[in-house]
Amino acid sequence: MNAPLQNDTFLRACLRQPTDYTPVWLMRQAGRYLPEYRDTRAKAGSFMGLATNRDYATEVTLQPLERYQLDAAILFSDILTVPDAMGLGLSFAIGEGPKFAQVVRDEAAVAALAVPDMDKLRYVFDAVSSIRKALNGRVPLIGFSGSPWTLACYMVEGGGSDDYRQVKSLMYARPDLMHRILQVNADAVAQYLNAQIEAGAQAVMLFDSWGGVLADGMFQRFSLEYSRRVLAQVKTEHEGQRIPRILFTKGGALWLDEIADAGADVVGLDWTANLGRARAQVGGRVALQGNLDPNVLFAPPDAIREQVRSVLDSFGNPQRADGGWDGHVFNLGHGISQHTPPEHVTALVDEVHAHSRRLRQGA
Rank of each mutant, 00 (worst) to 15 (best):
M1C: 00
Q6S: 14
D8M: 06
F10G: 03
L15V: 13
P18F: 05
T22M: 02
P23D: 05
M27S: 07
Q29A: 12
A30Q: 15
R32Y: 11
Y33C: 03
Y33K: 02
Y33G: 04
R38P: 00
F47D: 06
G49F: 03
A51V: 07
D55I: 10
D55Y: 12
D55H: 15
T58A: 09
T58I: 12
T61Q: 07
P64L: 01
Q69C: 05
L70I: 12
D78Q: 05
D78Y: 11
D78S: 11
D78A: 09
I79C: 14
V82R: 07
D84C: 09
D84I: 08
F100M: 04
A109R: 06
V115M: 13
F125R: 11
S129H: 12
S129G: 15
L135S: 04
S145L: 07
A152V: 03
V156M: 03
G158L: 10
R165D: 13
Q166P: 01
K168E: 13
Y172D: 08
R174G: 11
A190R: 12
Q191S: 13
Y192I: 05
A195C: 10
Q196S: 07
V213N: 03
L214W: 11
A215N: 09
F222Y: 12
E225H: 14
Y226I: 01
A232D: 08
A232H: 05
H238V: 01
H238R: 12
H238C: 11
E239N: 08
P244C: 14
I246S: 04
F248H: 00
W255H: 05
A262G: 01
A264H: 08
R277K: 14
V286P: 06
V286M: 06
A287C: 07
G290V: 04
N295P: 00
P300G: 10
P301C: 15
A303L: 13
I304T: 03
R305F: 04
E306H: 09
E306T: 04
V308Q: 00
V308F: 00
S310D: 08
S310A: 11
D313C: 01
S314D: 15
G316K: 09
N317Y: 14
R320M: 06
D322G: 02
G327F: 05
V329G: 07
N331H: 10
S337D: 07
S337A: 12
P341V: 00
P341C: 00
D350V: 00
H353K: 12
S356T: 01
G362K: 09
A363R: 11
